[in-house]
Every structure is written in structure tokens, then in C-alpha cells.
Design a protein around this nucleic acid. Structure first.
Lengths: 149, 149
DNA sequence: TTTGAAATTGAAAATCAATTTCATTTTAAG
DNA sequence: CTTAAAATGAAATTGATTTTCAATTTCAAA
């Protein structure tokens, strides 16, 4: 379970386990990925209105530092958090109409990146790749109320 | 010349040509790409201290809307502007040590993106791709004072 | 060339998310 | 238990971006 890994990691860092941190992790992991702080706070507050926004902010920052969460900023400028999945690195497809965010993995992309980096003498640590457009459903409807991006 | 294209476009939009706008475009085009507002304003102010920060801000926004500039936000969160180059779309390699930003084009990348998008039923309008690591010079030195990213 | 409505400018103020402060409370090691 | 260190939460601060507004400038029409 993630919550015990979280406790272990906190202990290792000389940090303390608190009810608030446990609740925030719990809620964060059990809700859809790619939410902003306000959304996460709203969920937390619904469960426990005593927990402050600041604590949610600090806990998400901590989760990010300890590798349980990743902070994402897509082209709309909002800061979102997603639980870090077990598997490999992934990138994102983002629908400009409905806001849907889809994660994908692609080995060819990874190797192509390495080839490009080598060509320019770079030693790559990480990357960011986002594809913006219309998802299948939104491409069908041809209305054009765009969001984000 | 870009400045006359700029005038034409402004006229088309019912906007007015001003000394300030002309100077800002001039300075923007004649300095290195990928600068933030503060840096651009500093250059403008050196040429003409009467021009206000707000005007530089608004003009860069206008240049972006009219397609003369592109706004970029890399992983360090800073907002930068680059002149929009004639040629094809390009992506970025960013050095985490010295901050160097290199533009690159790669057709394979473009076609791979389309393949990925198709696989997920997306219709792609634009994308963002950034590779973060050490440039050749910084990879040689092995010091580790990281910046951005 | 003059006129005047509309647009622009620039300083200051407002906004807004992100972050810090600080008094109080809680945790957990000894 | 004790108690030092850490965490909490409300409020304040920061810093970048954006808006406001009175004064100025542009430019199309007369």
C-alpha cells in the first residue's frame, strides 16, 4: 500500500506522519489524475473541512519531492498533480475542446529523443512531450468552443 | 522587412502604429531569442527609458497574437518570448546547467507524433516537445550547480 | 490642415496563484 | 511522561501578470 511506503519515506527523511498527510495522500490517489490544487483541496475539505489549503499545498509538494506525485503544467498554464504510476515514463495527449488528458507511452519516441539529443551533443535527463488537438469525440462534433492550450 | 508587415497587420486589425510598438519590435527581433519580459524591457528601456513596462508587455502580447512572436514556458516556469522564425515548427533542447536553449527540427518526430495521435483518435493542432539535460560543454565539466528544469 | 473619435500609453492599482510567516498544536524519540 | 522538533492553518507576503484610468497620440474624414 502506498500509505505505508509514504510513512516509511517520511520517517527516513525525519518527517512526521500526521492524520492530515495520510488523508491527503488517500484522497489524492483515489481521485482522477491531473487535478489542480483547488480541486484536490475541495475533495479534502469535503472529507475533513478542518484541513487547510496550505497543508494540502505543502503535502502535494512533499509527495512530489518523495516521488508519489508529479507536477504538470500544460499549455493552459494551470498547475496539476498526477499520481506517479509504477510503470515507465509517459507523455500526454490533451484535448483542446473538452480538456480530456490521455497518457501514452511510446518507445520509438524515447529512442528518437535520444538520437536527437546525441546529434546535438546533449545528455538528456528528462523530457516533456505534449500533443494538443481534438479527441475522437470532439473531432466528430465540429463546434469550436476551445479550452486550454 | 518585419516592421512593415507589422504595420500592415496592425492596420488590418484596426490598430494603430506607434513609435513604441515599432521600437519594441525592432529591439525584440534584434536580440537573442528566448528572453523574458524583464530582459526585453531592460533593452527597450536602455534605448528609450520613456517606454513603460506595461507597453512592452502589451506589445509582446500583440506580437504573439499577430504571429510575430511565440510565448514559451519551459520547465523552470519562466515565460519567454522568441521571434517566430520563417521555417518549420521547431522544438527545444534545454541545458539544465548553463540554461542554453537550442532549437531543433526533426521530421521523424513530427511523423511519429501523427502516428501516436492517430492511434488514440486525436486530431493534432500543435505540440510541445522539450528535452532537458546537459549540453556538450556542461556534460564535460561535471559540476552540478543546476538551474531551471 | 484641422478635427475628434478611438486607440494607446504609462503609472499605479488589482488580481491571483504560489509561498512564507508565525502562534499554536501535534508527533514521536528518549 | 517530557519535550524538542515538526506540522498545522489562518493570515500575510510575494511576484508575475493583467487591468484601470487619466492623459496623450494616431489617423480617417472633413
Amino acid at each position: 500500500m502506498e500509505s505505508s511506503r509514504f510513512k516509511t519515506r517520511m520517517s527516513e527523511e525525519g518527517l512526521k506522519s500526521t492524520r492530515q498527510r495520510a488523508e491527503i495522500l488517500e484522497i489524492f490517489l483515489n481521485s482522477a489524475g491531473h487535478q489542480n490544487l483547488g480541486q484536490i483541496y475541495a475533495r479534502v475539505a469535503k472529507t475533513d473541512p478542518k484541513i487547510g489549503y496550505t497543508t494540502v499545498y505543502r503535502t502535494l509538494k512533499l509527495l512530489t519531492r518523495l516521488g508519489f506525485a508529479a507536477q504538470r503544467k500544460f499549455a493552459d498554464g494551470e498547475t496539476r498533480y498526477e499520481p506517479i504510476p509504477e510503470g515507465a515514463h509517459h507523455d500526454h495527449l490533451i484535448c483542446l475542446r473538452c480538456g480530456k488528458i490521455i497518457e501514452f507511452e511510446d518507445d520509438h519516441l524515447e529512442s528518437l529523443q535520444n538520437r536527437i539529443a546525441r546529434r546535438h551533443g546533449f545528455d538528456i535527463f528528462h523530457h516533456r512531450m505534449e500533443l494538443y488537438g481534438y479527441c475522437r469525440q470532439c473531432a466528430r462534433k465540429k463546434s469550436s468552443i476551445r479550452r486550454k492550450g
